[in-house]
Design a protein around this nucleic acid. Sequence first.
DNA 1: GCGACAG
DNA 2: ATCTTGTCGC
Length: 239
Amino acid sequence: MTATRSPYPANPFGDWDGTPGAARELQKRLAEQVRLEDELPAQLRLIAGVDVGFEEGGALTRAAVVLLDADSLEVVAQSLARIPTTMPYVPGLLSFRELPAVLQALAALPAIPDLIFADGHGIAHPRRLGIAAHLGVVTGLPTIGVAKKILCGDHEPLGELRGEQVPLRDRAGETIGTLLRSKDRVRPLIVSPGNRVSLTSAPQLVMRYVTRYRLPEPTRLADRLASRREEKAAARRGG
DNA sequence: GCGACAG
DNA sequence: ATCTTGTCGC
């Protein structure tokens, strides 16, 4: 008998003792495992979007994953994982709060995606290990971080038209991501590699999946499911 | 010491 | 992230 097991690790934190200090040290070690070369299938077949929301005033963490056909963008599968929240939100330590639920939702999918879009930063992070990079390292899969706000880094002014971009750099002048205008005159997205994707490919891949909204489809759909946009809108109108 | 600070 | 109504602009 060969037990069918999850292709994803149950514990993405190794022997972490639960303290913020040890979490930061672990990030530095894992950041060394991030690969910034393109290592994607020649032809992408399945892409996924992951996002996390909260219920019960934050007591419950709700991770959502949406699997899409890379060509038609049709939804192939969806997955939801709801588990008790264990950590508070601490800037720079987001993955320690959200990854457990994300991995559980990913494991419930019927297939492994070729590329994952995560809500948050990849290497555009103080220790180069935002949630997208952390997810990429522990799963070994290609990942891209798509955030709505800058965590760290500076940049030159950005043009107002769709497709325009400008590099996000750290103090040393090193490029850690890209500010991308996904639509005319909307707040730019902050895109950065998570793992197995290059700095130049990341924004190109994001634009490839942007349709009529600011967020690329994988991220947008996962966001809807994680934040229960449907339920809330219906409940609010109905009664 | 002061300001900044993904979701 | 979440709690929340109407409102300004493309």
